[in-house]
């Protein structure tokens, strides 16, 4: 057993330290450490590495940081805990290994949370994403009364039963790091090592942007344009999905990923419209249903591809 004192010396010193430790920890557990998806998303779950790869029989293990945008959570950088742009750390393993809880607890140790001196608890919290047509059972993980992660066994994604089941871990990085580092206001959190020649705080990096985006999200975003973009993304998604599976040269190339990008886009546009207060409660359901329909069709297509089934990708005839 490590004593609290030993542990003290092993604590991360800044935000990026927490991230780097999670990266090395999950890399050591055999996960492919991916990079963030290059689109605006509301949560790490939207990354195709989770949404699409949780479908089908092919085994999968990935971990990544995902910048997440929640326009309605913007507080002009003033609120100690709320941001419209923040980071999630996401781990997805299929099939969920029997020791996933232990692996998870190991990751807490890696960032300096020793479960022998903290109170770590798994408290029922089922997860549902109406936009993705997805749900799972699991917990929110509490550390000393604070929610530090979501732990979910996916049961359905895009309307498809998950067989096998993926285990998904989501860490809210800012909140977790603030706790580990003992910081009260997110903007005060050291981003790089405070001993660095040029120490940077979270606020140094993001305060200005938070203010600007809060204004744009709440007051400035052109709702007519956003609505049009939503319709465009929806139409393009449908068009891609409706396209023939074979290209002009007769090669079978279904386009689940490009179609799914459009579904992600539509989802984010919906969030922006929501932040602008132009979506009524009844409409909200309708919009969510429209995005879900797209996500579901993307999933329908993805499960037919070798990325899901694990079969070898057919090679094209030479010279093609």
């Amino acid at each position: 057993m490590t004593s609290p004192k030993d542990n003290q010396t092993d604590k991360p010193v800044c935000f990026q330290d927490v991230i780097l430790r999670l990266q090395s920890y999950w890399a050591a557990q055999g996960c492919a450490v991916l990079q963030p998806y290059d689109m605006e998303v509301g949560a790490g779950t939207f990354h195709p590495a989770t949404t699409l790869r949780s479908l089908g029989a092919r085994p999968w293990a990935a971990a990544y940081v995902q910048p997440s945008r929640r326009p309605t959570d913007g507080r002009y950088g003033e609120n100690p805990n709320r941001l419209q742009h923040y980071y999630q750390y996401q781990v997805i393993i299929k099939p969920s290994p029997a020791n996933l809880q232990d692996l998870y607890l190991g990751s807490l140790k890696a960032i300096g949370l020793d479960p022998m001196i903290h109170d770590v608890r798994f408290v029922e919290d089922d997860w549902e994403s109406p936009t993705l047509g997805a749900w799972g059972l699991g917990w929110e993980v509490w550390c000393d009364g604070m929610e530090v992660s979501q732990f979910t066994y996916f049961q359905q994604v895009g309307g498809h039963d998950c067989r096998p089941v993926s285990g998904e871990l989501t860490y809210g990085l800012e909140r977790l790091a603030m706790y580990v580092l003992g910081v009260e206001h997110v903007m005060d959190m050291p981003f790089n090592n405070p001993e660095s020649p040029i120490p940077l705080s979270y606020g140094d990096i993001f305060r200005q942007a938070e203010r600007e985006y809060s204004r744009w999200n709440f007051e400035q975003a052109d709702t007519e344009m956003l609505l049009q973009h939503f319709k465009d993304a929806e139409a393009e998604c449908a068009r891609i999905l409706d396209a023939a599976d074979t290209d002009a040269a007769g090669r079978a190339i279904p386009m689940a990923h490009p179609a799914y990008d459009q579904a992600i886009k539509a989802s984010h546009l919906f969030n922006l419209l929501d932040a602008r207060g132009v979506i009524s409660v009844t409409e909200r359901q309708a919009y969510i249903g429209r995005v879900r329909a797209l996500a579901k069709r993307c999933a329908d297509l993805f499960v037919t591809t070798s990325a899901a089934t694990g079969e070898a990708l057919p090679t094209f005839p030479t010279g093609a």
Binding site: P4, N81, P115, M116, I117, D119, D144, G145, Y179
Partner: peptide, 23 residues
Amino acid sequence: VANIDTPDQGETILKGNQRVLAA
């Protein structure tokens, strides 16, 4: 109500909970 006896008699746990409560 914590789920563990700790070497510091729950001091760390209580401090953490107090912090969350304050927020």
